[in-house]
Nucleic acid binder design. Structure first.
Lengths: 141, 141
DNA sequence: CTTGAGAGTGAGAATCATTTTCAGTAGAGT
DNA sequence: ACTCTACTGAAAATGATTCTCACTCTCAAG
């Protein structure tokens, strides 16, 4: 069989866009994400990845984060003012943010106002939505 | 009757915290918000407010935005990467963000996964939530 | 092999939004 | 008048992120 058009590549369960190469630097960043739990900042990730790949640059870390964000493997949080990232599944999902420990968990639970109500009350046509639920996680309860 | 403990002061429908003075500079910022529609950045607001109060400083604009945010008269948006503010009512509400013109509208329509489901599936106790709905507004349709 | 195109790179400069610092001002309560 | 304290503008500082640049790497074609 002839090889098909190039697809997304995947490593550590994280997807890179088609045509993007899995270089040693990116591998280091992806490993660092794999080793992280919950939310992390770009700088934390950079410092961690740099242990495995000491010549790694901060710009490359940001470039890699952006690639992952585009494939939906990563979500950028900014609700609380402090920027951070969390790994997430590319499927439709929302976030449970723990106010006590700051951890973020994905949930497939979902609810939105009906299109009917949006249309009638606002003349608005919805295409997508994001929901963040704040509270206390299992571990902190 | 003796005067009660000092309350929130309000101007242009925007509330300042108790103990905060309504100075000419703040009044200029509040007027500028009143004259704005939809979302605006801190810098845009500063420039507009400065027309009425030319000696106004940028720091004061930020300080005023922060006060309003604390009373719930203002909401800081950051979902799309670009920081911006929208005026909003202190009541519980969510946002309809138009992908075409960028306008933001409040809605009282609301829906979330049930506490029962959150608890059963994640052991999570919800306290609050934020919902942003993206789509097309009445004017752009 | 060359070679050429384009993706990828690190370092550091540049940008952008925001916050802090500081020395001085303005008002409300005495 | 006096004294708190909130408030102020200007400028410096900060923090996160993006951009620029000159260079390298990979890979497929000749």
């Amino acid at each position: 069989m002839a090889s098909a058009r190039r697809q997304e590549s995947s490593y550590q369960g994280l997807a890179l866009p088609a045509r993007a190469r899995l270089t040693p630097q990116r591998r280091a960043v992806l490993d660092a994400i794999e080793a992280s739990s919950g939310r992390f900042t770009a700088l934390e990730l950079f410092q961690r990845a740099r242990r495995a790949s000491p010549q790694l640059g901060l710009a490359t870390t940001y470039r890699t984060l952006e690639l992952l964000r585009r494939t939906g493997s990563l979500h950028a949080l900014s609700g609380d003012g402090r920027p951070a990232y969390v790994r997430c599944s590319p499927k439709h999902h929302h976030h449970l943010v723990c106010l006590s420990c700051g951890s973020v968990e994905d949930t497939e639970l979902c609810a939105t106002p009906s299109q009917r109500a949006l249309s009638r009350q606002h003349g608005f046509r919805a295409e997508s939505h994001e929901l963040e639920i704040y509270g206390t996680c299992k571990r902190c309860l």
